[in-house]
Design a protein around this nucleic acid. Structure first.
Lengths: 228, 228
DNA sequence: ATCCCAAACGGACCGCGGTCCAGTTTTCTT
DNA sequence: AAGAAAACTGGACCGCGGTCCGTTTGGGAT
């Protein structure tokens, strides 16, 4: 057993509260905001530099070009620092996606209907899926690269939040169903890897993907599909 | 661009016919059969030794302990040989699952109903899911370890076959639906990583998983759930 | 201003997946 | 039987993710 308690306090990013949901102001672009709670001055500065460097690398060479060593070098920082701050490569990539994630969560919780509260649950589900598909398609390579290993795939905070949201809507729309299991099924349709496969490798147009979602929601909730 | 045509003819295993389905006799245990079409004598011998060694390592240290170098050493073979034969780690692990895969395919195509032909499509779908769940749970760690990277996850031959099967049944059961997209949704429910998460990390009992499948099939096909 | 230590740093280090290529073995041809 | 082409082999090699640990530094306490 190579077990020994890690010298790092490990991941600052993804732990947070064990339950879901934390919001932040959508302030500046990548890096320059003030959300990490208690972080030493130099640490905060390096964190910002790392995120900026990573974003630049993504823009230049795509997500595949984001090497931990490259990011460290581009930020003029030691490799260990990158891992200390973000835990692992996935953590770094997820941090890069954090802004859009926060915005999305805000829209779900407090934005205008049908995405936000105020619309009937089935309608909100439809809107949710279409928004997710749009977002996934827009950030495909990053989302794909940020996918955690199979064991951790379903335990990341953003994913849990989104699935919880779907489960909540399902509970309202179909109280008699196993909304936990059903929410996993719905989320799976929106999975980045699947979306990538269908759009890039099978040539399925986004409109058909969205139509498929609408139909799926209708079937799962045993409702009629919308007229349009 | 580091592009250069590989010195290997690359993967002999997973290519095969571009379309689905190839069957084999379920002869001996791991390794000693005669399926690879044209393989030099020593190559065939080494292939068998590698599979045997890999199976032993899985049995001893779990799928995580199956290191390419370890397999090569255990089979008294060079590391390059392992990659030449199986392409990559995923290929080796999938080869390890090949027997059960072949058996499963055979049961779907020619076995007794309701899994095989003869039963109404919805009933076959139900049986398919339950069988898949049972198989996934039985081989969880190996299935998990054999999962390809996100880009290739949906292009492996076994996966394509199974999904095609579901799409076929769906086409019969709900001719008006987009059975391609729906089949992806149904398959996603049976995904090894999800099953692992639900059973191992959330403590969902298999019976509930199967009930969830039955319910999902009923909703998707807009049929009544079975009485029992 | 000084001390002190938890926190942060950085780069040497490790293991593994994957590639390359010079040399060996098999099989085909005549 | 001999020779040549094709297929196969093995291990040195590379890059990257991730860890370790000796050193530095920020910032609260005195």
């Amino acid at each position: 057993m190579p077990a020994a308690l890690p010298p790092f306090p490990k991941p600052q990013e993804t732990v947070g509260p064990p339950e879901l949901l934390q919001l932040g102001t959508g302030a500046a672009a990548t890096g320059t905001e003030e959300d990490e709670p208690c972080l030493r001055a130099d640490a905060a500065r390096n964190r910002a530099r790392l995120l900026e460097a990573a974003a630049r690398l993504v823009a230049e060479h795509g997500a595949a070009g984001v090497t931990m060593e490259a990011v460290a070098a581009a930020a003029s920082v030691g490799k260990g620092t990158v891992f200390r701050r973000f835990g692992d490569r996935t953590g770094l990539l997820m941090a890069l996606l954090d802004h859009s994630e926060k915005n999305f969560q805000a829209a779900l919780l407090g934005g205008p209907p049908p995405l936000g509260p105020g619309a009937p649950p089935v309608e909100r589900l439809r809107a949710f899926g279409c928004a997710m598909l749009r977002r996934s398609i827009a950030e495909l390579d990053l989302q794909l690269a940020a996918e955690p290993s199979a064991e951790r795939r379903y335990t990341s905070a953003p994913r849990r939040f989104l699935r919880g949201h779907v489960a909540l809507l399902l509970r309202q729309a179909v109280p008699d169903a196993d909304s936990e299991l059903l929410s996993h099924t719905l989320m799976a349709y929106l999975d980045a890897a699947l979306v990538h496969h269908l759009t890039e490798q099978c040539g399925v147009p986004p409109t058909r993907l969205r139509a498929g979602w609408t139909d799926l929601v209708a079937r799962v909730t045993r409702t009629e599909p919308p007229p349009a």
